[in-house]
């Protein structure tokens, strides 16, 4: 990490502490600032774990409500983003455990809407209907594969793969050791590899590493 980014983190932490102080003093605009600053990351993390738009929004709202309710318990030496991620992960895993039916992958979500790696206004990523159908099928397979791994394994995987958390950060958020994180990540990858084997040719290693 560079000195500049260290300074940036420090400034941000100071800003966060002042936001926390203002929220504790009843300043609603400070709470709104906090929400605006973190809403996207919280929503996407929740979405990656629960795999459903509506539930992801519910989870993200619950996160902010919990933060507001217990803001006075926030330790000055803690990092706001870590606290938010911890609440998000716990709330999202609760949703998975309560859920009896897995949400179906809505193909229309993928073939008509903008996707996050496309700029806004770029339109559909798949101009050809066949391509769109293939892509939607693949999305379904990937979502299915993700739901075949356990909630904790999936959480570790989506944090590392889609949300750029480092192993040590995941360990902090989940309050487990780095070794356990690595083990969960390996198990998640191994299961995904098996679930998606039809998209690859080689199966020799699968049999040997079981």
């Amino acid at each position: 990490m560079t000195a500049a980014s260290n300074r940036g983190d420090k400034v941000m932490e100071e800003n966060e502490q002042s936001i926390v102080d203002r929220i504790c003093g009843g300043d609603m605009s400070a709470f709104q600032d906090l929400v605006e600053r973190h809403k996207r990351k919280i929503y996407y993390l929740a979405y990656d774990i629960v795999g459903d738009h509506q539930e992801a929004e519910d989870v993200s709202q619950e996160v902010f409500i919990k933060v507001y309710r217990s803001i006075h318990k926030f330790r000055k030496d803690a990092k706001m983003s870590s606290w938010l991620h911890q609440i998000t992960v716990n709330s999202a895993i609760d949703v998975l455990r309560r859920r009896k039916v897995r949400p179906k992958v809505n193909l229309e979500d993928f073939d008509q809407t903008e996707v996050h790696d496309n700029p806004p206004g770029a339109g559909s990523a798949f101009p050809n209907p066949e391509q769109a159908a293939d892509a939607a099928l693949l999305q379904g397979r990937i979502q299915d594969a993700l739901h075949k791994v356990s909630p904790r394994e999936r959480t570790v995987f989506v944090m590392r793969h889609y949300n750029d958390f480092q192993i040590s950060e995941i360990a902090d958020v989940l309050e487990i050791s780095s070794g356990t994180v690595k083990s969960l990540l390996f198990r998640a990858l191994n299961k995904l590899r098996k679930e998606l084997s039809s998209y690859r040719g080689n199966t020799r290693w699968e049999a040997s590493y079981e």
Binding site: Y43, Y44, Y47, D48, H53, N106, D109, F110, T113, E114, V115, H116, D117, N118, A125, A135, L138, Q139, I142, Q143, L146, H161, Y162, L189, L192, R193, L196, Y199, R200, N202, W205, E206
Partner: peptide, 19 residues
């Protein structure tokens, strides 16, 4: 190689982006 190619497939996952 298999792990890496699995991750390549997982990279094709798209999140529906809220407007």
């Amino acid at each position: 190689t298999e792990m890496s190619s699995t991750l390549d497939i997982m990279d094709k996952r798209r999140r529906p982006e809220p407007d």
